[in-house]
């Protein structure tokens, strides 16, 4: 018994890390010198994408036919999601004129992140070794943040022209000596924002899992099954918290992306 506990105590950190990290390559794949191996996070992303595509293709059928008068049931739920992102995030922060062009981007961010976040909470996917939360991987969140970084530049350039967008780094009416401080700050901000998006989402998604695993760890460390009662009860509570965090972080990522895009379109604010 004591032996087992000691053995666990040496490994517990590694076990936790293993559970919140991506798997090794499940299907090794090299293309044009890039490692495109299919890992667990790639599969989780695909599942999230497949779930969203299936749900919306089915749910939006009445809209494609143009037969929607009063939506009901599942369609109503999907419409609430679209309505929320379009009318609560994109229209207020990006502006009504550009809302139609940016809503699909923000919707894709929101739905993909929220689905990936929630999929990570389902223990079933632990059948494959590694973490099930693709959005807890900095590479995934960085890829999403890089798109927002590009989207900000695209949005600004579309509205003000390429030169006009970069000119907006320096707000008009600012005395020129201030620009020496302001422009570096603005340039730094350009990169800090997507970096913050990357870290916020990945850290939030990973932290919850680490906390849950750490709470379960004493059962093995102390080799006392009775601790399990407390650990499991606590983890049930944390699971609810994780659901909220999954929704909130997806909302925050989508909202901040919309805010940044809106700021590039309306630099005067």
């Amino acid at each position: 018994m004591k032996m087992a506990a000691e053995e666990h105590s040496e490994n517990v950190g590694a076990v936790i890390l293993h559970h919140v990290s991506n798997s090794e390559a499940l299907v090794p794949l090299q293309l044009w010198g890039v490692d495109l191996s299919i890992t667990k996070h790639v599969i989780m992303l695909w599942i999230a994408g497949a779930v969203i595509i299936t749900a919306f293709l089915i749910g939006a059928r009445p809209y494609r036919r143009g037969t929607v008068r009063v939506p009901s049931g599942f369609t109503n739920f999907l419409e609430a999601v679209v309505d929320f992102v379009h009318n609560q995030i994109v229209v207020p922060y990006v502006g009504r004129q550009s809302a139609r062009s940016w809503s699909p981007y923000i919707l894709a961010l929101f739905t993909l992140i929220v689905t990936a976040n929630l999929l990570g909470l389902i223990p079933f996917f632990d059948l494959i070794p590694g973490s099930g939360t693709s959005t807890g991987n900095v590479n995934v969140t960085a890829a999403l943040a890089v798109m927002t970084f590009m989207a900000i530049i695209v949005a600004g350039s579309r509205e003000h022209g390429v030169i006009g967008h970069w000119k907006n780094l320096a707000p008009p009416g600012v005395p020129w000596p201030v620009l020496f401080i302001l422009i570096p700050i603005e340039l730094l901000g350009m990169f800090v924002r997507p970096f913050a998006l990357t870290m916020r989402l990945a850290a939030n998604m990973t932290a919850g899992h680490i906390a849950m695993l750490a709470i379960l760890a004493p059962i093995f460390l102390l080799a006392n099954p009775w601790i399990g009662i407390g650990s499991v009860a606590l983890n049930v509570g944390i699971s609810f918290l994780e659901i909220i965090v999954a929704l909130v972080q997806a909302y925050v990522f989508a909202l901040l992306s919309a805010v940044f895009i809106g700021a590039a379109i309306h630099p005067e604010h």
Partner: peptide, 13 residues
């Protein structure tokens, strides 16, 4: 750093 995962993220997205 997993460039492959980033590319897969973009493709999926």
């Amino acid at each position: 750093f997993e460039p492959g995962l980033m590319i897969w993220t973009w493709i999926t997205f």
